[in-house]
Computed example of a mutant assay.
Amino acid sequence: MRIAVIDLGTNTFHLLIAETAGNQPEVLYKTNVPVKLGEGRINDNIIIPAAFERGINCLETFSHTIAQYQVNEIRATATSAVRSAENGQDFVHAVKERAGINIETISGDEEAELIYQGVKLSGAITETSLIMDIGGGSVEFILCDPEKLIWKKSYNIGAARLMQQFFKSDPITDDEKNAILFHIQNQLADLFEICEKYHPEILIGSAGAFETFAELIIRKNNLKADINTAKTFAFNFDDYISTSIKLLNATHNERAEMPGMIPLRIDMIVIAVLLTNYVLGRCKINRLTLSTYDLKMGVLASMI
């Protein structure tokens, strides 16, 4: 059977097409498009007209690709930008009408569950772990061990939200950093409470910004790793920290020129660094790994 999974993220729309004969799904096609659905007014809970149109155009293209691959079943999930937008359901209806795709708007809890299932499939969970998925609209945290999911929660502190609210200078100022950290400290109180109890030993970054961190380090050190084919990537912690400090101190143009940086993340990576470093520090974690399997693979697993 052929399955298509569409993940409508706040920044990026993803399409994954897989053949599910046998135990392991075989990925036939995957792509992502930086639609930036949350551009401009995500904190006002509005999808602006230009982003609305970009989203529909992208899904019309996805629809053609799905037809070419003669897919049997499609599951399209929308996350933070659509679920929080006042015109989110208008977008869902417009997509159905123009692209013929039924979108399911999932809750933050469902999103966290699917991320967990995807990361689990990568084999990254080998001890008590904290999974972190940094989206444009929300950030999901999942506390787990190799046997089970212990705790999960989605927070509306995604990179696009924080960037639009706080990040106005180039490079980011100390005042802006402090405002962001103060904001997330208040939001994440229950996360730190649960981590005090279970002491996760490693932070597993789910795709997205963590793939960019990995790509920057791979290029800088001429490593042989390829995150396009790898399921996981273990960071050298000192390497990660020095890269993160460089990103925080760099200007927009300096970040743009870093080998491995993609245009979508030039500015949002700064927010991702602040979030990641704060969580590592507060939870006393000094090990970091990437799972390239995320929500999409969790949706695929749930369909198989």
Rank of each mutant, 00 (worst) to 15 (best):
S80Y: 02
A225M: 13
T12S: 11
P200R: 00
N102A: 01
R265Y: 02
N286Q: 14
P34L: 12
I46N: 04
Y116H: 14
N249Y: 15
Y69N: 02
Q89N: 15
P259E: 10
W151L: 15
I204Y: 06
N23M: 09
G135S: 14
D190E: 09
H252P: 09
D133T: 13
I157A: 10
E196C: 02
D174E: 01
A179H: 01
G108H: 02
L16K: 05
P25T: 03
T232F: 07
L248W: 06
K120F: 00
L300A: 08
I115S: 00
G281R: 03
I74S: 07
P263V: 12
I204S: 05
E147M: 11
N286C: 12
Q164W: 13
V92R: 04
T105M: 03
N249Q: 13
R287M: 14
D170K: 12
I47G: 08
P146Y: 03
Q68N: 12
G22M: 00
E39G: 11
L143C: 10
G88F: 03
G108T: 13
P34V: 09
R255P: 00
P146N: 02
Q165F: 09
L121N: 07
F233H: 12
I202G: 00
E110R: 13
N222Q: 02
M258G: 09
I134T: 07
I17H: 14
P49N: 00
L275P: 09
N228F: 10
A81N: 11
G208A: 13
S242M: 11
A67E: 05
I47E: 04
L130P: 15
N249E: 15
P49G: 02
I204P: 07
R219L: 15
I204A: 04
P259N: 12
S129F: 08
L248S: 03
I218P: 08
T12L: 04
I150L: 12
L37N: 13
L143R: 01
